[in-house]
Computed example of a mutant assay.
Amino acid sequence: MHETPPRVAQPRNPLHGVTLETIVRALEAHYGWADLAKRIPVRCFSHDPSVKSSLKFLRKTPWAREKVEGLYLFMLREQRRMQRPAD
């Protein structure tokens, strides 16, 4: 019988605990489908885009998922930068 290894806390990983659906919804809300398709040129963002079709594609396509996760991290950094008070 196999035991599941305990989950390791990842306090420095901003993607830890964030679902792919949450990432896609956040990017769509921030950039919109058209701008998202320009930033990451894949059909699921440019031709009849939806969260469902995007998730289906991204779960099967590791290189595209990496690009989406990278753009999400970039968006989070930009949002944090914009929230900093001016010196």
Rank of each mutant, 00 (worst) to 15 (best):
C44E: 13
F45W: 04
I23Y: 00
Q79T: 11
R39V: 03
V24T: 04
P11F: 02
A64C: 14
S46E: 08
C44I: 07
P85C: 06
L55K: 05
S54D: 02
E69P: 06
P62L: 12
P41S: 09
Q10T: 15
R43T: 14
L20A: 02
L27T: 02
L20N: 03
W33D: 02
M1Q: 02
L15W: 04
S50N: 12
I23K: 04
V51P: 02
E66F: 03
H16L: 01
L58Y: 05
G70F: 07
M82F: 08
L55S: 02
H16G: 02
E69K: 13
F57L: 12
P85M: 11
K52P: 02
Y31Q: 04
R84M: 11
A86P: 03
H47I: 15
H16W: 13
R81C: 03
A29D: 13
A29K: 14
A29W: 05
L27R: 01
S46T: 08
T19A: 01
G70N: 15
E69A: 06
R25H: 01
R59E: 15
R77H: 14
T22A: 14
Q10V: 05
L20T: 01
L36P: 03
T22V: 08
K56A: 15
L36Y: 02
R65A: 09
H2T: 08
D87H: 06
L27K: 00
P41R: 08
Y31G: 03
P14E: 08
F45S: 01
A64Y: 05
R59Y: 10
C44H: 07
V51W: 10
W33M: 09
H16E: 11
T4W: 07
M75K: 06
R81G: 10
A26S: 11
V24G: 03
K56P: 00
R12A: 14
F57D: 06
L27V: 06
E3F: 09
W63F: 14
S46F: 05
L73H: 03
P5K: 08
A86C: 08
A34H: 10
R84L: 12
D87T: 11
G70H: 08
V68P: 00
W33N: 02
L73W: 05
F74R: 15
P85L: 15
L20V: 08
F57W: 13
D35G: 00
Q10M: 09
S54Q: 09
L20G: 00
S53H: 11
A64M: 07
M82L: 12
E28W: 06
T19H: 02
K67N: 05
W63K: 14
F57P: 00
S50C: 12
P62I: 12
G70R: 10
L55T: 02
Y31V: 01
M1I: 06
Q83R: 13
P6Y: 07
P41W: 05
V8G: 00
G17M: 05
M1C: 04
P6D: 13
P6N: 09
R81P: 01
